[in-house]
Computed example of a mutant assay.
Amino acid sequence: MPFVENIDVATDQWESRLGAQVRSLRLEHGSDQQSLARLADVSLSSLKNLENGRGSTLRTLVRILRALDAASWLDTLAPEPTVSPLDVLRGQAETPRRRVYRPRKSV
Rank of each mutant, 00 (worst) to 15 (best):
residue 106 S to F: 15
residue 21 Q to C: 04
residue 20 A to P: 00
residue 93 A to C: 08
residue 46 S to Q: 09
residue 74 L to S: 04
residue 44 L to Y: 15
residue 85 P to F: 13
residue 60 T to W: 08
residue 96 P to V: 06
residue 11 T to M: 08
residue 82 T to C: 13
residue 10 A to V: 08
residue 86 L to H: 09
residue 87 D to F: 01
residue 97 R to L: 08
residue 31 S to Q: 09
residue 54 R to S: 07
residue 66 R to L: 10
residue 77 L to H: 04
residue 14 W to G: 03
residue 54 R to Y: 05
residue 7 I to L: 12
residue 30 G to L: 03
residue 7 I to W: 04
residue 33 Q to I: 13
residue 100 V to S: 10
residue 102 R to W: 15
residue 15 E to I: 05
residue 95 T to M: 11
residue 90 R to V: 06
residue 10 A to Q: 12
residue 28 E to R: 08
residue 90 R to H: 15
residue 97 R to F: 02
residue 50 L to Y: 07
residue 22 V to E: 01
residue 54 R to H: 05
residue 37 A to K: 01
residue 21 Q to N: 06
residue 13 Q to G: 02
residue 92 Q to V: 05
residue 19 G to D: 11
residue 35 S to T: 15
residue 70 A to V: 13
residue 94 E to A: 07
residue 97 R to H: 12
residue 29 H to N: 13
residue 86 L to R: 03
residue 79 P to S: 01
residue 69 D to W: 00
residue 3 F to Q: 06
residue 81 P to F: 09
residue 66 R to M: 09
residue 63 R to D: 01
residue 28 E to L: 14
residue 53 G to V: 03
residue 14 W to Y: 15
residue 32 D to A: 04
residue 24 S to F: 05
residue 51 E to M: 04
residue 65 L to K: 01
residue 15 E to C: 07
residue 92 Q to R: 13
residue 1 M to H: 12
residue 56 S to T: 09
residue 52 N to C: 08
residue 80 E to S: 02
residue 72 S to R: 11
residue 82 T to E: 13
residue 11 T to Y: 11
residue 100 V to H: 15
residue 83 V to G: 07
residue 6 N to M: 12
